[in-house]
Amino acid sequence: CELFGMNAEEKTAEFIDEAWIFTASPQGKKVERQMRRIGRSYNNAEFFISQSTKDALHEDDTGNFGVAFAFDEPNEREEVLRWMNLEPSEENKKMLESMFQGQCLFKDIYGRTAKISIECLFDEWMG
């Protein structure tokens, strides 16, 4: 994992699903930090896919994320809002709670956050 993407001639992207595995142990955290360093050095993309903000929120890592998507998670609404640079006010919690399937919050590389809707482009994908 740490060496993937070190060829400057190649464009690489790493999709890390169930990323909690990397945050569950000191060894995993070390590997993930090294992957980020390599990714930044070689301009690679890393997709950190998790079901919880707790898996991705590290006080010293908050500046390392480019864009983020967050769907409503009833047990973590305040954390989701903070991660997405929104105040955890009652109004924002209600906005998050009222999102329907396919809607999520999107944060861009400048820290701006908006609510977006994801739609299925092709009928064959519906299955």
Rank of each mutant, 00 (worst) to 15 (best):
E73N: 12
C1P: 12
W125I: 12
V80Q: 01
E18N: 14
M35F: 00
D55N: 13
I21D: 06
T12R: 13
G111K: 06
G63K: 13
G66I: 13
A45D: 00
G127F: 01
G5I: 05
K30T: 06
Q101T: 13
K115N: 11
Q101M: 13
A68Q: 14
R37F: 03
N43V: 03
G111D: 10
G63E: 13
S89P: 02
F47M: 13
K30G: 05
R77T: 01
E90L: 08
M84C: 09
A45T: 00
E91G: 01
T113M: 09
C1R: 12
A114D: 10
Q34H: 02
C1F: 09
E124W: 03
Q34P: 02
Y42C: 03
W125L: 15
F48L: 14
I116H: 07
G127K: 12
V80S: 02
C1A: 15
G63V: 04
M99D: 07
G63C: 11
R82F: 02
E73L: 11
S41I: 05
V31T: 06
G111E: 08
K94D: 02
Q103M: 14
M126C: 11
P74S: 12
N85T: 04
F106N: 09
A68S: 15
W83C: 09
V67Y: 04
T53E: 10
R112Q: 11
E14L: 15
D72S: 12
M6T: 04
I49C: 11
A19W: 07
W83H: 08
F106R: 10
N7W: 03
F100D: 12
P74C: 11
R112P: 03
K94E: 10
K30P: 00
S89C: 02
F71G: 14
G66H: 15
E97S: 11
L86M: 10
K94Q: 09
R36K: 09
E2N: 07
F65V: 15
P88I: 02
C120F: 02
N92P: 01
Y110R: 11
T53P: 15
Y110K: 13
D108V: 04
R82M: 09
E9V: 06
E14Q: 14
D123N: 04
Q51A: 13
S50R: 13
Q27N: 01
R37Q: 06
R33P: 00
D60V: 06
D108A: 04
A70W: 00
F100G: 12
F48Q: 07
G127S: 08
K107M: 15
I38D: 05
L57W: 05
K93R: 11
A19L: 15
L57V: 14
D61P: 01
N92F: 01
A8V: 03
F15T: 01
E2A: 14
